[in-house]
Every structure is written in C-alpha cells, then in structure tokens.
C-alpha cells in the first residue's frame, strides 16, 4: 500500500467502456425495436446486448480487482472510489424520489381532485361524478380500461416479514464488517453468507407476493394508479435488492479468497453502503406503500 500522493495512479487505456456502450446500445436499441413491434430482431438485440453488458461488468470489475490486488492503488484512488460510490448512491436515491414523488402526488392531489375536492374538481363534475376518492384506490374513475383489483396489499404478513428480513440483513452485514475489521475471516464470510441468504429470501418472498397479487388479488400493473405505483416502486426496489445481492456475492467470493484486509476493503464497504441504501428505501416503501 502506497500512502504518499507524490505519484498519481492513472489507469492505462481500456476497451471496457466502449464494450459497455456497445452492450447498452444493443440492449436499449433491441428493447426499443421489440416494443415497437419488431419482436424477433428486438429480442436478438436485447439478448446480445445483455450478454455483452455482463461480459463488460465481469471484465471491467475483474481488471479493477486485479489492479487492486496487485497493490497498484494508493489511498487517493481509494478515496476517489468512495466519493464515486457515494454520489452514485445519491443518484439512485433521486431515481427512487421520482417514483415516491409520483405516489405522494397521486395520493395527496390527483385522487382527491378526481373525487371532487380541492381546486381541480372539474374532472369529477364533468367526467366521473360517481367516483369516490379512496386509498388504496381499487374503484377506478373509468374501470373499463383496467384490470380491477379485488383487494389491496396488506402490510401485515409477508411485507412485515420482509421488513424484518431486510433489517436483519443490515445487521448481519455490519456483523460481517466487524469481523473484517477484527481480522476474523470466518465471521466475515459467515456474515456475508447470512446477508446474501436473507437477500435471496426477501426476493423469494417478494416473488411469492407478486404471484398472489396477480393470481388471487387481481392486482396488476394494469390495475390503475394503485397497481402502477405498487409494482413500479416495489419492482425497482426488488431489482436493486438483486443488484445489491450480486455485489455482496462477489464480495463474499473475494472474502473467501482473502482479498480484504482490516484497513483496505473498499469493495466490501461499497457493497454494504449499497445494501443499506436498499434497506432504507424499503423502509420508505413499507411505510408509504403498504402501511399508510
């Protein structure tokens, strides 16, 4: 470990960013083609793009891990990575903010206005005079266009269990970090196994909840604004849990190989920051989507 900043570290040129751009181009272009009716060509592009993107992630992160293990990073690089990850997480927070904002706006303004209260009650008067504003919104202004849900998702039961699971996983990842800082690799690896396991359990239960929603409750993306906000918020959150779990799995594999030292383990911290971020988003979800 080099602690002086008298020499800077600048990586050599790399083909991975361009590979990543090509992958994303094929993935997004393919998706656009598929959505606009060219299913065959579109799926082909999506498939290729996804594979290329995954190859890029493996190659790029692999290169960074190799450089890190080769002792080529000084403290300054470490701090750059930390700032980079922190600001990246802020950008993710703002991505979720758009959907939370939509939920709050709909609950606070749009649905009550449609129900005839407030400054913009004209739609109620002229379009849907019999519409009653409630939340969760099951009886829609114009039910004919939508799959009407039979019931809303209760907070008790699976969501409450999932909250416990995710909160516990935040504790286990911290326990793993204590192990890492104390030089106790067994505790580190066990803590990470537990965390990844809890994450997987969370995703399994979430999938079960979705299954119930679609089959038993008739609650779908197409069930009006309640279904839209429910599935978009929990769905993007679930995708982020998956990403976090994959990050932690890589960290777990690296921990087993002894990659981290008590003072030098940015990858572990980045993954755990991300995990805590996902955890906090869930708490927001649990309160505003399920509970209230």
């Amino acid at each position: 470990m080099n602690t002086s900043v008298s020499h800077y570290y600048v990586p050599a040129s790399s083909h991975w960013p361009l590979v990543g751009s090509l992958g994303l181009f094929a993935l997004t272009g393919g998706s656009a083609l598929a959505l606009s009716g060219h299913l065959g060509l579109g799926s082909f592009g999506m498939g290729i793009g996804f594979v290329v993107f995954v190859i890029m992630l493996c190659g790029w992160f692999g290169a960074v891990i190799g450089e890190s293990q080769g002792g080529r990073y000084n403290d300054q690089v470490d701090v750059s990575f930390r700032w980079g990850m922190a600001w990246f997480i802020l950008s993710e927070v703002m991505f979720f903010a758009a959907f939370f904002g939509a939920l709050f706006y709909v609950r606070q303004f749009a649905v009550p206005w449609l129900g005839g209260s407030g400054d913009k009650a004209l739609a109620h008067e002229f379009l849907w005079p019999s519409f009653v504003a409630t939340w969760p919104l099951l009886q829609l202004p114009d039910a004919g266009q939508f799959t009407v849900a039979k019931q809303a998702m209760a907070a008790a039961g699976l969501p409450a269990v999932n909250t416990l699971i995710l909160l516990s996983s935040g504790a286990t990842v911290t326990w793993a970090h204590w192990g890492l800082k104390a030089g106790n690799r067994r505790q580190l690896v066990r803590g990470l196994w537990l965390t990844v396991g809890l994450g997987a359990l969370f995703l399994g239960l979430q999938a079960h909840e979705y299954w119930d929603a679609y089959t038993l409750m008739n609650l779908r993306l197409t069930s009006g604004i309640y279904g839209s906000t429910f599935f978009m918020l929990t769905g993007f959150h679930g995708a982020h849990v998956l990403i976090g779990a994959i990050m932690l799995s890589v960290v777990l594999a690296r921990s087993r190989r002894g990659h981290f030292t008590p003072t030098h383990h940015f990858a572990f911290e980045a993954a755990s920051w991300y995990w805590h971020f996902v955890d906090v988003v869930w708490l927001g979800l649990f309160v505003t989507v399920y509970l209230l």
Binding site: Y105, V106, F109, A110, F231
Partner: peptide
C-alpha cells in the same frame, strides 16, 4: 398498461409536468 398519467386510472397527466 400503467396509469401514472392517465386520469381514468386515477393518475394525472399534469403529474408528468411536475416530475
């Protein structure tokens, strides 16, 4: 089939403008 900006499903096209 979501209805974020579709009043018939409880959404609001004006919400898009806010976001």
């Amino acid at each position: 089939g979501t209805s974020f900006f579709n009043a018939a499903g409880g959404g609001d096209p004006v919400m898009f403008q806010h976001v």
